[in-house]
Write a protein that binds this DNA or RNA. Structure first.
Length: 341
DNA sequence: TGGGAAGCCCGTGTTACCTCA
DNA sequence: ACTGAGGTAACACGGGCTTCC
């Protein structure tokens, strides 16, 4: 099992050996850094003398320890390059944990999960009531429920699916929340900004990153997960739109080029039929760059007959239209083709 | 060692809620 | 006050991958 340190102080040095996670499914033993360069929040798994014990004896699994380096302990201007203040980071904990003020002035409790609390109540766990301002974050609640079970991996998953409201896998929040319809919770600007920052650094999350972000933003891990899923979908949609626009422009360019070449071909044929054989020009390769509209002319070997000249021209037309490298590159990268040697 | 089961995550499509003009 | 459009959080479902037995 991978061991690591969770250190305060010089986190840059302490975690410099860490690498961004690339494998989500096997990342339980990886360490989280929200950024490779500026470690804003660090969570480690390893043998330390703090924290939560996930598992001791299930299937030979080793003990997992989580070390959380609270963001509130780090100066805000070191947390966000943009130095956006995040009130909940340091204030909410002391003031009103779990409560975030939405842009519309609503006070939204993004963090309360009746399912967890009900579970805790059922099992007599010593946790806060849903309405108290005890400072018990959902993160803690999540793990508190996880730690009770031996298999951390499966439990995390079950928790997620339960939160997803998947009727095949679990019971939704709403089902457990007095049957109320799902309430759409608007993320605050600060939360969205922070998620955006995280998304810029890595557009997928491993479980630790998800939990860490959730704790930072005082959201449920499921909310973070959903946000990233939706964000990826939005990115892809936007990229698709851009690609569509580009292909549209390519199509228009090619259509125009085709039109011009057809016209050119007609003119050459007319020229050929109207001129005596000895005046006919040698076959000429004309190629036009669709971006700069420049025509490159290359004179091929002299063609003795009109038929050969027509053939050569037609062939060239075909070649020009077929430009295989036109689509893969943006128009700015399309260069005038090399003249045939 | 191969195969099935279970769990997890992701992509995609959809729904429902919210905001705003 | 009402309404339709747009944005988006949340959900549903299926598939791929990994791990375990």
């Amino acid at each position: 099992m991978e061991l690591a340190l969770s250190l305060g102080g010089d986190t840059q040095k302490s975690f410099s050996f860490l690498k961004k996670s690339t494998n989500n499914s096997s990342s339980h033993e990886e360490l989280l850094t929200s950024s490779n360069k500026d470690l804003r929040f660090c969570m480690g798994l390893g043998k330390s003398n703090t924290t939560h014990e996930l598992d001791e004896n299930n299937g030979g699994r080793k003990i997992l320890h989580l070390d959380l380096l609270p963001l509130s302990a780090v100066p805000l201007n070191q947390i966000m390059p943009s130095q956006i203040p995040f009130p909940w980071l340091s204030q909410n904990i002391a003031a009103e944990p779990g409560l975030t003020n939405g842009p519309a002035g609503k006070v939204l409790d993004m963090n309360r999960r009746p399912i967890v609390l009900e579970e805790e109540a059922e099992e007599g766990a010593d946790l806060s009531s849903p309405n108290s301002n005890s400072g018990v974050s959902s993160f803690q609640m999540e793990f508190s429920s996880i730690y009770r079970n031996g298999n951390s991996r499966s439990l995390i998953g079950k928790r997620d699916h339960s939160e997803a409201g998947d009727t095949e896998r679990g019971v939704s929040d709403e089902d457990e929340n007095n049957g109320l319809a799902r309430k759409k919770l608007r993320l605050t600007k600060e939360q969205s900004a922070f998620l955006e920052e995280s998304f810029k650094e890595h557009n997928t999350l491993n479980p630790k990153q998800k939990f860490a972000l959730a704790k930072q933003l005082k959201l449920r891990p499921r909310q973070v997960e959903v946000w990233f899923q939706n964000r990826r979908a939005r990115t892809k949609l936007k990229q698709t739109e851009l690609d569509c626009e580009y292909l549209k422009r390519c199509c228009e360019t090619l259509t125009e080029e085709n039109r011009r070449l057809q016209k050119e071909l007609q003119e050459l044929r007319a020229l050929k039929s109207s001129q005596p054989l000895y005046m006919q020009l040698p076959a000429t390769t004309l190629t036009m760059c669709p971006s700069c509209e420049r025509v490159a002319t290359t004179t091929a070997a002299a063609v003795p007959t009109a038929a050969a000249a027509t053939s050569a021209t037609a062939t060239n037309t075909t070649l020009s239209l077929a430009k295989p490298n036109l689509f893969p590159f943006p128009p700015a990268q399309v260069h005038a083709p090399q003249a045939a040697s």
